[in-house]
């Protein structure tokens, strides 16, 4: 198993406005790692720093003790596979050809049989064998997602990152894919990192949960039982909840949102707000002709 370590990683497009800040993490055991946290907290940014799609502003990422900044992209690609959020391809190929692209780093003369077999297995696993010869752009969003996951799986890397693999999937396939990724991680002895939004699916299937909070920091890392607590979820997501024990997993029941920021709607009473706006409007209307008459 490859060991990936982030040491005080900070990244921002503008200096002074980091998206993620001083993140330190170690991934060295096989398993399903789910990264959770509210919108805009830097989940995608974090995973992109792992394989140098983005270069950290400060701090280092090491694969087996080697700084990725000094590694060739090809070498990083041998350790870490990555599946972005699914999107349309401008010039789409068949599903089978699209999945075969994932074998790019395994290809050599005469490797075609093995590549086809890997692609076929991945299609079978994701239950999309019937789509093999369909054009990628003819598919639904959920089918796109499954093809993208298959393309990730056939890379056969010791670490596999998937950015929101269950987005666009219906409930059944959200559960199926997450379950599959967990089983795949165990079976292959690899680390699968996913970004997830569903707290209950995460708490049921993740081996480890990485919880990010504003402003782009790691809030907690640990087993679902350790991380998915009422206090943590309320603090990070700003939503009331209760956590129960269900089938041996923490089960989260969501309550109302906790609106304690500046955008509170009830700061100005509804009527008062409208009358204030009218006031402003009449001032503005008055101002324009006055200037003209001068």
């Amino acid at each position: 198993m490859t060991r990936v370590e982030l040491k005080d990683v900070t990244f921002g497009y503008n200096p002074g406005h980091p998206i993620i800040k001083d993140i330190s993490l170690v991934v060295e055991e096989p398993g399903l790692y789910c990264i959770i946290g509210p919108n805009g907290v830097g989940k995608s940014t974090l995973v992109k720093c792992l394989n140098r799609i983005l270069a950290p502003t400060s701090g280092t990422v090491e694969i087996d003790g080697v700084d990725v900044a000094t590694m060739h992209r090809k070498e990083i690609a041998r350790h870490i596979g990555y599946v972005p959020v699914a999107s349309d391809d401008t010039f789409a190929m068949s599903v089978l050809d699209t999945i075969l692209i994932g074998r790019y780093n395994h290809r050599s003369w005469g490797s075609e049989g093995r590549d086809l077999e890997a692609a076929y297995r991945a299609m079978k696993l994701l239950r999309i064998r019937n789509l093999a010869n369909r054009n990628f752009n003819e598919l639904s969003a959920g089918q796109h997602q499954k093809v993208a996951i298959a393309r990730g799986i056939v890379q056969e890397t010791p670490v596999l990152i998937l950015d929101e693999p269950t987005a666009n999937l219906d409930v059944k396939y959200q559960v199926y894919v997450t379950e599959l990724l967990r089983a795949f991680a165990e079976k292959k002895g690899i680390a699968v990192l996913t970004i997830s939004h569903d707290l209950n699916i995460t708490s049921k299937y993740a081996h480890k949960v990485i919880m990010l909070a504003r402003p782009g920091v790691v809030y907690r890392v640990g087993t679902p039982r350790e991380v998915m607590t009422k206090e943590n979820i309320e603090a990070v997501y700003g939503i009331e909840c209760s956590v129960e024990e269900h089938d041996g997993y923490p089960y989260i029941v969501l309550g109302g949102p906790l609106m304690d920021d500046d955008d509170r709607v009830d700061d100005l009473g509804g009527f008062e707000k409208t009358s204030r706006i009218r006031e402003f409007a009449s001032v503005l209307r008055g101002a324009v002709p006055k200037r003209r008459s001068k």
């Binding site: 992109k48 992209r73 690609a77 596979g81 990555y82 599946v83 972005p84 190929m93 692209i101 790019y104």
Partner: peptide
């Protein structure tokens, strides 16, 4: 042509597969 195929999956995914 193999690289062109990889590039068609998007810049980020291409970078992740080792192509600048």
């Amino acid at each position: 042509s193999g690289r062109l195929n990889v590039l068609s999956t998007g810049d980020e995914s291409a970078k992740a597969m080792g192509i600048d």
